[in-house]
Design a protein around this nucleic acid. Structure first.
Lengths: 225, 225
DNA sequence: TGATTTCTTCACAGAGAGTTCACATTAGCC
DNA sequence: GGCTAATGTGAACTCTCTGTGAAGAAATCA
């Protein structure tokens, strides 16, 4: 059963979405503001979150940002009032999957929900673990283990590793890595990426050599040896 | 370089999108209607297609449907006029990746382009290969394998090989090779190209003879023997 | 708030890659 | 077969890119 959390301060809008979502066979829960949404996400499992932007207590973006800390892959659809253009862009930045402009048609919203679920379920189906010999990444626990021993990675190192590993066997350009792991608008030093690769390699010990340098291009995580 | 095909019957809209897309570093081409878009997609390579729905000759949906026959993974963004709700839903059905409602802001369109490219990069990158007997080039991994054994090529050697192979069976002049692989602004020594060809041949071992010298012209990669 | 961790920047070193050059070799032409 | 112009070759040189440690800045935590 697919569970959707509907977050909006207007009860009428929540009810409307609930009605249609149930009709599509989804299980629903509601939250009145960002704070409540964050709390519910910490306690319960959801497959998708619908989130209004303008809300009392905690706005939609801050809420998504907060939720993403513990659930980095939980799909989010934002609801934005017409004209909130800045919000839209900011939304994609935070890592929102889609947004719908109010007033929206319920059919449209349902279509977008289905599209996103289809897209993310594929990724989720591939298991929430990555294993390569003695290297184990547990995505849900956000931990990395080498030969049975838990290793400590900084947030950036972990994200970098995950992106590399999820694209194992594929050459990733420096731009791709920077724009994905650091964000679309990173304009920092050229050595930032190298430095994190260095730290990551150091922590990966024997598996460091799986991160291959592609001179003039970027890096690639080897699928096998 | 990311290439985007912009399809709309209104020249003004095309120009607007072209302007912003170029600004974002994309390479662009235009089509006036669905028919032209289909033809261009068959002849040239694009990374993304932007497509208006209402057009003379061939409408957007039919065009996407047609394009998908030969390019099932080519991302498409539809442009729909306000109120064409049915179109939207139908669009997702055809397998459109996203749509933007007119009148749209250019920033919003660019954000959606970036979002989709990011999403499809992974899928698009994998499974792209060239095979000739025991010679295998994996474009996504950026690796070359000979008889099952991975060989190491320098960046220039790899690019040179890729360009030759992508134009297998076609005579390429020295000027073409230099301006494509080195860049149109290369004014170096005559021996530079030879030297790289030499190194490439050495690395290709038994397959070296596939790079044929065309005296007074350039080189050609043999399609078969 | 202060302490600690993490991230970014910077200067420099080193390795790898690219270019140039002198000369050898080859192919085509008479 | 010799001549000429073009390509092939090895080695030296130069350059560009990545790796690295250290230090300062920023974020996080207590």
């Amino acid at each position: 059963m697919t569970r959707i959390l509907i977050t909006d301060d207007e009860a009428k809008i929540r009810e409307l979405i609930v009605k249609y979502a149930r009709h599509e066979g989804f299980d629903t829960d509601e939250a009145e503001n960002g704070m409540e949404a964050v709390e519910k996400c910490e306690r319960e499992h959801f497959d998708l979150v619908i989130m209004d932007i303008m809300m009392p207590e905690l706005d939609g973006f801050s809420a998504v940002k907060e939720i993403r800390k513990t659930h980095p892959d939980l799909p989010c659809i934002m609801l934005s009032a017409l004209g909130e253009e800045y919000d839209r862009i900011h939304g994609f930045d935070v890592g929102v999957d889609d947004y719908v402009v109010k007033p929206f048609s319920s059919k449209e919203l349902m279509m977008r929900i289905h599209a996103i679920l289809k897209r993310t379920q594929r990724a989720a189906a591939s298991g929430d673990q990555f294993v390569l010999k003695g290297l184990l990444i547990d995505y849900s626990a956000r931990t990395v283990t080498i030969d049975g021993e838990r290793i400590q990675l900084s947030p950036k190192e972990y994200e970098l590793l995950v992106y590399l590993v999820r694209n194992a066997g594929i050459a990733l350009t420096r731009e791709q890595l920077l724009s994905t792991v650091w964000g679309y608008d990173f304009f920092g030093d050229d050595r930032t990426l190298d430095t994190h690769i260095k730290l990551l390699r150091r922590n990966l010990k024997d598996y460091a050599s799986y991160i291959v340098t592609l001179r003039g291009v970027g890096y690639r995580f080897e699928k096998a040896d």
